[in-house]
């Protein structure tokens, strides 16, 4: 993962709360088996509307999204994070994020910056009155600068450290392989294993007859 210290780019005001992952990327785009190439799917339903914020030339190349509360609710699809990243977003700012979305973002190097709703409103105001304004997000200082507005943001300390160091979670956990093996040696025998497979007696499954 690339190290993240600061980022400067065009801010995009998305004045909507509860932007769920079905809005960020509809399920129909989830059939791909690759991890990249999702930029066309981002906000697919809204992108058809010429008034949608990303269709306005000033915001087209935005890389810092400033959204309403409860961004990323709903499904666990990491595709939502990939779509934002593939489009070019490096940071999402909101007053509250859904837990799974925030976790997925952290794994993928997309910064989710938690700012108060009051400060989100301040940022929206600048971005709407001066479209195309750059936002500078400093992970080092935990600050957001947009025109004359400078506001702080919150982020989990450990996630911040990992982003700044660009560290891979799996590698970190595998440093504790001995602890994992030790834990496994103590697991109780009633805990199920999927192998060897046990099932009810085999039954043939014919295609259902949908109508009488």
């Amino acid at each position: 993962m690339e190290k993240f210290t600061t980022h400067t780019g065009v801010g995009v005001p998305l004045r909507r709360s509860n932007v769920d992952t079905d809005q960020i990327i509809p399920a129909v785009y989830l059939k791909r088996v690759t991890r990249t190439g999702f930029e066309d799917a981002l906000f697919a339903a809204w992108r058809g509307d010429p008034d949608f914020i990303l269709n306005r030339p000033e915001y087209e190349h935005g890389s810092v999204l400033v959204a309403g509360a409860d961004f990323g609710t709903g499904s666990s699809r990491e595709h939502a994070v990939w779509a934002l990243k593939d489009y070019g977003f490096k940071v999402v700012i909101a007053s509250r994020f859904a837990d799974i979305f925030r976790g997925n973002s952290g794994k993928q190097g997309l910064l989710t910056a938690v700012a108060s709703q009051e400060n989100v409103e301040l940022l929206w105001k600048v971005l709407e009155t001066q479209p195309g304004t750059d936002i500078t997000v400093s992970l080092e200082e935990r600050s957001i600068r947009c025109g004359d507005v400078v506001v702080p943001f919150e982020i989990d300390e450990y996630v911040r450290w990992r982003l700044m160091e660009g560290l891979d979670d799996i590698g970190l956990s595998l440093q504790h392989a001995d602890d994992i093996t030790d834990f496994e040696s103590r697991r109780e025998s009633w805990r199920p294993t999927t192998l060897p497979a046990k099932t009810e007696p085999k039954q043939a499954v014919e295609a259902a007859r949908p109508t009488s």
Binding site: S76, R77, I100, K107, Q108, I170, E184
Partner: peptide
């Protein structure tokens, strides 16, 4: 529920 990075994490480490 977990995201795909975590799916990979669990596959590799069971943690």
């Amino acid at each position: 529920g977990i995201g795909t990075s975590e799916v990979e994490h669990v596959l590799a480490t069971q943690t």
